[in-house]
């Protein structure tokens, strides 16, 4: 019974906090760049404004264009609901699986790309093709990370990986460090952050994600924006859950465990979001032709993580 309640809390939590996380990253970035920046809760106001506005749909748009925002948002939301944030005692935890997670994210991305091409503008197609390029490179890297994690812990379910790490079976493992580096690189690419894509840009030559959603307005745009915010929160939660699960409540932890888990989740998100803002300020955007090197690097890190696992097995 408790697991259903915590699952519902989690479902609401990820959507409710996602705009705050994004707003916080923007705020820290603005501060680091010497601007005052909008308040961290500005995204809530933006979303409210977008929901009030009328949705304009192009004449050439088909039903795909109108459906895509909802499908994208639903798939990302479901994926975010499966990643344990403050407790592993959740109704969906047995179904949550890193490979299922990759697939759900792929569904969302596929629909966004379809919608980008649906209207028939040049930018939509360009953005879609770039997004698919990034996805085709990022997905193998993400799968490689899940393989090396499953080799360490014997499972691909995040909840069981958390339980395994918390039980103290893992020392300082080189493979885990490499896998974490690979996952961070994938997360940067998937969320369209600098150096892969600039989330704040509207310069035609460099934009990827923004180019696909250029035609959207009103509530459709609000859905797309929320989906992007939830995806960022999802990856922050995923990195925190897989590589720093300390403090997360286990089944039978009681209300104290839940409180500790909440506090740990807030602290982890805070640290990771600050690190992201700092990293984005410190680094320049990469040329499109170098994406393959960057994400190939992530794939190779995942591969090396697996190789090192075999070494420590053999010794």
């Amino acid at each position: 019974m408790n697991s259903v309640i915590w699952q519902l809390v989690q479902i609401v939590l990820v959507v409710a906090t996602a705009p705050l996380v994004t707003g916080y990253v923007r705020w820290v970035k603005a501060r680091l760049q010497g601007r005052r920046g909008p308040a961290p809760w500005q995204p809530y106001r933006d979303l409210y404004r977008l929901l009030q506005k009328e949705a304009i749909v192009a004449h050439s748009a088909s039903w795909i264009f109108r459906t895509a925002p909802y499908v994208t948002f639903a798939s990302v939301w479901l994926a975010a609901a499966m990643v344990p944030t403050f407790t592993t005692n959740m109704f969906l935890a047995p179904a949550a699986d890193l490979i299922a997670l990759v697939a759900l994210l792929a569904v969302g991305r596929f629909w966004t790309a379809l919608a980008g091409m649906d209207v028939g503008t040049a930018f939509g197609g360009l953005g879609a093709s770039r997004e698919m390029l990034i996805a085709s490179l990022a997905e193998p890297a993400m799968l490689m990370v899940s393989f090396s994690l499953s080799l360490v812990s014997g499972t691909t379910a995040p909840a069981q990986i958390v339980a395994f790490v918390l039980s103290g079976n893992v020392g300082i493992e080189v493979s885990l460090g490499l896998a974490m580096a690979a996952l961070v690189m994938v997360a940067i690419a998937e969320n369209g952050r600098i150096p892969i894509d600039n989330p704040a840009t509207h310069l035609e030559l460099t934009m990827v994600h923004e180019a696909m959603v250029l035609e959207y307005s009103g509530r459709h745009l609000a859905m797309i924006e929320v989906a992007a915010m939830v995806r960022l929160t999802l990856f922050i939660a995923l990195i925190g859950c897989l590589f720093a699960p300390w403090g997360m409540a286990q089944p039978g932890g009681g209300p104290v465990g839940i409180m500790v888990g909440m506090g740990a989740f807030v602290a982890k998100s805070f640290v990771l979001a600050t690190a992201l803002a700092w990293f984005e300020t410190a680094i320049a955007k990469m040329r499109v032709f170098r994406y393959a090197d960057f994400l190939g690097g992530a794939l190779l890190l995942g591969l090396l993580a697996t190789i090192f696992l075999y070494v420590s097995e053999a010794v």
Partner: peptide, 29 residues
């Protein structure tokens, strides 16, 4: 190209592991 260099690099790492581990079977871990 950088990509190919990295791939060759990983292959070399695998090679050296395959080479060293059987040769030094009696040494300390």
């Amino acid at each position: 190209s950088i990509g190919w260099t990295m791939i060759v690099g990983v292959a070399l790492v695998a090679l050296s592991i395959l080479l060293v581990l059987p040769v030094t079977a009696k040494a300390a871990a």
